[in-house]
Amino acid sequence: MASLATIATVVSAAGTIAGGIAANAAAQDEARQLEAKGKEEFAASQREAEIKRQEGRLIMSRQQALAAASGAGAGDDAPTILKLMSGTARESEFNAQVEMFGGKSRKSGLFNAASNRRREGAATLLGSVTKAVGGGIRGLNTSGAFG
């Protein structure tokens, strides 16, 4: 009867460890997915920032064309158009930087979540091994395997 109890203890311990291994693998996969999403978020923010810059360039081009059509002057020496265009350029770049900051922030948050998920997976694995060893020793002791 002691050998059957010993086998049951070993099988239980192996099952506990296998569960920890599976939980850790799932955590690692989830962490990789979070990092991939973080990279996608950052790339999207870069595209959006470039769109903001392009919109600014188009607005400035329109401003210059309207100024030229009005006859008020649109050259590099026309103070009004220079003031308008420099304001547009600043606003355009500010909007681009806001997009980039948002993307970096989202990426950072997702990378932090991935790191936390990895630690959780490792802790689950360690906990399952500890539980299996402790349960195994207890089971083997009560089964009479140690004397």
Rank of each mutant, 00 (worst) to 15 (best):
T16Y: 05
G15M: 10
G127M: 11
E48F: 01
A96C: 07
E40F: 01
L140W: 09
A5D: 09
A22L: 13
I17W: 03
E40S: 15
V10P: 00
I21R: 12
A13Y: 02
G103N: 04
Q28N: 13
N112V: 10
R57V: 11
K83N: 14
A44Q: 12
A13K: 04
K39G: 03
V133R: 05
A145H: 09
A22N: 08
A74L: 02
T80A: 13
A132V: 06
A43D: 11
A8L: 10
K107W: 11
Q33I: 14
E55D: 15
D77A: 14
G127H: 11
G19S: 07
A132K: 00
A23R: 07
L126I: 15
R53N: 10
A25M: 08
A67F: 13
E99M: 05
Q64M: 03
G134T: 15
A132I: 10
R47P: 00
L82Y: 00
A43W: 00
M85H: 06
A113Y: 00
A8K: 11
A123M: 03
A65G: 03
R62A: 09
F101D: 03
G144S: 05
M100N: 13
S143L: 10
L140P: 02
K52L: 12
I137S: 08
A44I: 03
K83Y: 13
A27H: 06
G87D: 13
I51L: 14
L58C: 09
M100K: 05
V133F: 03
G127T: 01
G102V: 04
N95Q: 05
D29L: 15
S70T: 06
A65Q: 15
A23D: 12
V10K: 07
Q64K: 15
E41S: 12
V98N: 02
A18W: 04
L34N: 01
L66M: 04
A43T: 10
A122G: 05
R106Y: 03
E41T: 12
E41Q: 15
R138F: 14
A145M: 10
E40K: 15
A69S: 11
S45D: 08
R47C: 00
T6H: 06
G135M: 02
A69R: 09
A27D: 00
A22V: 13
A26N: 11
A69W: 00
A44V: 12
V11S: 10
K52W: 06
